[in-house]
Simulated assay, not measured.
Amino acid sequence: MAVRIGYTMMTEQAGPRELVGHVAAAERAGFDFSVISDHSFPWLRSQGHAPYAWSVLGAAAQATSRMPLMTYVTCPTFRYHPAVVAQKAATMQLLSQGRFRLGLGSGENLNEHIVGAGWPAAHVRLEMLAEAVDIVRRLFTGEYVSHHGAHYDVENAKLWDVPDEPPPIGIAVSGPRSCELAGRHGDLVIAVEPDRELLEGFDAHGGAGKPRVGQVPVSYDTDREAAVARAHDQFRWALGGWKVNAELPGPAGFEQASQHIRPEDVAEAIACGDDVDAFVEAVRPYAEAGFTEVALVQIGGDRQEPFLEWAEAKLLPALRSL
């Protein structure tokens, strides 16, 4: 079966109205699904945006009619209480008429520090995520829920508007512990690197046969040098790896951490320009690792329209062969 190709609404690089326009154009271009980042800060100041993802999603549900929509990903443990996440997700499933998937993860300090709750060790964050997922699932039943756990309290909560089919829950993974959590508690798995071991860990704990969704940054431009420069300016943070990216508290930290990354380093890691084969090769490792879906991130908020036109005409037909 061919890999499904998705489009990313990157909230760090465009405002809310622009994001909704972009996702509607992505649906017309033929993308199979869309995902959205859920941030309170951009990674780098040059990206320049961080609108509220859930408001954008509500508008996107009305601006599209076919594509599934998904958070990639929401952290249900600090900025948002899991009971609030459950209400938002149930509402999105109703607004989109069954097209919503709830992608969850243990978060990054970049976004979660704003509520002043501290930033515990990774194993604690995963414990919090597992407890949060349980609360969300229980609330999706539409029944009253009370919960007094290690990390959360829920007192006589109930969702009054629940869809017939609850949103599938995806869980982001980056190592063995998160793979176990995803396999036991998730309906699908999410990852940002084409690591077959992550999928094997997911399968070993109950994930076999479930969807697996990856994400690939790209920088389209007919001027390859401009594409490389833009990728370096706005996406060099991504080369730091998630052990670093989960811990830094703000754009200034990412700017300092990435100050020695050169444009040529970015060009080696990210497909830049307008060579269709290079973009296909960027996606291929995900297909070979066993991912069933891959969402593309076009770098640059002001470069979405030409990318989408090119993708419809050339890139998507080439990617369908994977």
Rank of each mutant, 00 (worst) to 15 (best):
P263E: 01
F279I: 07
L198T: 12
P251T: 13
A289Q: 09
D164S: 14
V192I: 15
A231V: 09
E281N: 14
A257F: 03
F279G: 11
D195Y: 05
V213T: 14
G206Y: 03
V162G: 00
D195C: 08
D275L: 01
P249W: 01
V294T: 10
R177I: 12
E165C: 10
L248K: 09
P194A: 03
A226T: 15
L239K: 09
S178N: 08
G209N: 09
W160A: 13
V154E: 01
A191Q: 08
A295V: 11
V280G: 10
L188T: 13
A227M: 06
T222V: 14
F254N: 06
A257M: 11
A157R: 06
G253W: 01
K210M: 02
G241K: 13
A257I: 01
Y152L: 02
E155Q: 13
E255N: 05
A267Q: 04
A278E: 11
K243A: 13
V266S: 03
A182I: 10
T292I: 08
V266D: 01
C272N: 09
D187M: 04
A191G: 14
P176E: 00
A157H: 06
R196M: 02
D161I: 06
G214W: 09
Q234P: 06
A150E: 12
W242V: 09
E247K: 14
